[in-house]
Design a protein around this nucleic acid. Structure first.
Lengths: 143, 143
DNA sequence: CTTGAAGCTCAAGTAGCTTCAACTCTTATG
DNA sequence: CATAAGAGTTGAAGCTACTTGAGCTTCAAG
């Protein structure tokens, strides 16, 4: 029951778009599928499975090159699942680092907005103390 | 006291790199500076101030095109500081949205790692239930 | 005067796709 | 069977915000 899928059908089932699928094929992340007489790509269940895996990894934020590693872990009988765990741990760490950066950014931006409310009366550019602060070397109002 | 700065000195004082400064010049975010006889760029305090402002906006996560707007707010006498506040508010909202995404990602990755610990004994690829889950359509272990 | 650091220009590379132009193929309907 | 819409094809360029590289010139210190 390995029903044939067009690129559009594969896209719908996997959550990728047709151009993305062609792109993955181009960079060697997906195999080159069989073609119909007219040249249209034909996919099967195995392709859907693999693409689903790839999309899921991408949703997890893994960069393409790491996805390549992960795919090879799946297909290589000799490599272990703990490799996936370790890669996921690394990924978790970088997600957390990025979140910490964003938290700082959030705090700074919040301060900037608050300062704009408190210290400026909505005056024009050159009179605004906030804009002056932003342009001054050293620490900034929300820095 | 408008001491002259080389591109390297400007870089050190502003936190940008020389290539980045040249890039900003190329895209019209910084004016074209005067040159010495040998062709080297010469900057002044005004350039440092402007670049500091730009870098700070970039650190806040504003995209280049919005920085362009912000710079014009500064230089246009008729436009008000509240514009900056509004842009900062928008930016704050998108930072928060991005953070929410990352929080979900963190939770999912955490689950993935936990599942790998709990359900797999570190077996090889084809035997790992986690890898199966990731490739299966529909919901995933940490989905 | 020599040497090494810093600067110059222009071009290409990075990630991860998306979008475009200019076609061809398939499928549904009349 | 004709036709028109929609889906598919290709290769190339575009996107963000820079970074890197090649190959050369200039500057500052000793």
């Amino acid at each position: 029951m390995d029903r044939a899928l067009s690129i559009g059908a594969l896209a719908r089932h996997s959550g990728a778009t047709p151009p993305t699928i062609r792109y993955y094929e181009q960079i060697g992340l997906l195999r080159r599928p069989d073609r119909r007489d007219g040249g249209h790509r034909v996919y099967g269940e195995a392709d859907l499975k693999r693409l689903t895996f790839i999309r899921r990894c991408r949703d997890f934020g893994f960069p393409i090159e790491q996805v390549r590693d992960l795919v090879s872990v799946i297909e290589d009988v000799d490599r272990s699942c703990t490799e996936v765990r370790d890669l996921a741990r690394d990924q978790l760490a970088s997600v957390r680092a990025r979140m910490a950066e964003l938290r700082e950014l959030e705090a700074s931006l919040g301060l900037l907005v608050a300062d704009c409310e408190a210290r400026c009366a909505g005056g024009p550019g050159p009179d605004c103390v906030i804009l002056e602060d932003l342009a001054a070397p050293g620490r900034c109002c929300a820095g």
